[in-house]
């Protein structure tokens, strides 16, 4: 693998962890528009602890994630009293406050940005991502996951059957913030340099968008969404150079690769929400994918065993 490809995989891994931060509250019917704020908290807390406390780096990222989860738990009780637009706006305001507050803390460099001494590569980040996926996949197969779906669809009904709706919503919100903080901490330890303005409202919006594009009814949805979001720009890389092979004159606007990426991504979201609002990975699609993987594994195993025979 080239270092460029490794870099892409790292970004994908981090995006997947963050995606579950948005996925969990959405699965409980709540939108957290302050994901970037929780990421920032996780990133800065882990970076500060890593630079000053002399703990093993792997511990510091979980401390960072813990801080994000703790903030979520503290604010969840008042904030989750609100619903719908009010909840979306309250979490949005919370995210803005966290970013603006960090901007004023000289201890972590304020607007200058903050350097992180420890570096994580794919070898550290990928296992954490896999563990995150495993945790969410497990939760999806318990009453916890079942009840979250029930709450998001019909809160009253779930409550009448004895589901502790508020507690579960707080749990989903807090666990989501924990994963967002974990993703932020990984981000800090991969890029080794963080600035408050990296964690703006637009980032929160992108995370919500790619999670919903992937789909929120299957644990695979956030992975697919994160993959599309991560790999889409690669298609548009050097668009002007590709075109110059066919045309003499290449217009300027073909060179705006990152803007094309976002424009296409946005168009994809709009079209998907119109035609297939449940996202790419429904449970049916997940089952089909699982069957396909099983088939591939069987073929592979078959080929290997037949190859080993002579």
């Amino acid at each position: 693998m080239t270092s460029y490809q490794t870099g892409l995989l790292v970004i994908l891994s981090i995006n997947i962890v963050i995606a579950y931060g948005a996925y969990l509250p959405i699965a409980a019917g709540q939108m957290n528009l302050g994901i970037a704020g929780f990421m920032a908290l996780g990133a800065y807390a882990s970076a500060y602890v890593a630079n000053n406390a002399g703990l093993p780096p792997i511990v510091t990222i979980f401390i960072g994630a813990g801080f994000a989860g703790l903030l979520a738990l503290i604010v969840a009780v008042p904030i989750l009293r609100t619903r719908g637009i009010y909840l979306a706006l309250a979490t949005f305001a919370l995210g803005q406050i966290v970013a603006a507050a960090i901007l004023n803390v000289e201890l972590v460099g304020a607007a200058e940005g903050y350097s992180v001494l420890d570096h994580f590569g794919l070898a550290t980040i990928a296992p954490i991502t896999i563990a995150t996926i495993a945790v969410v996949a497990y939760l999806n197969r318990t009453r916890f996951g079942l009840n979250l779906t029930a709450i998001s669809q019909d809160e009253l009904l779930a409550n009448l059957f004895g589901v502790r709706t508020r507690r579960l919503q707080i749990a989903a919100f807090t666990l989501g913030a924990f994963f967002a903080g974990l993703g932020g901490a990984l981000h800090a330890h991969y890029y080794n340099y963080i600035r408050p303005q990296d964690f703006n409202i637009l980032l929160s919006i992108y995370i919500i968008l790619f999670v919903l594009l992937g789909g929120t009814r299957s644990v695979l949805g956030p992975i697919v969404g994160a993959a599309i979001f991560t790999f889409l720009p690669e298609i548009f890389r050097d668009l002007d150079k590709k075109f110059s092979a066919f045309f003499d004159q290449v217009p300027d606007w073909l060179g705006q690769a990152s803007a094309w990426r976002f424009a296409i991504f946005a168009a994809l979201i709009i079209v998907f929400m119109m035609l297939r609002p449940q996202g790419i990975m429904t449970r049916g699609a997940t089952r089909a994918a699982a069957r396909w993987v099983a088939w591939c594994v069987r073929r592979l195993g078959f080929a290997r065993s037949s190859g080993a025979r002579p």
Partner: peptide, 14 residues
């Protein structure tokens, strides 16, 4: 809401 976010990003980037 999500769709309108999509439009924000679409307009800005276009």
């Amino acid at each position: 809401l999500v769709s309108s976010m999509g439009f924000l990003i679409l307009y800005e980037n276009l």
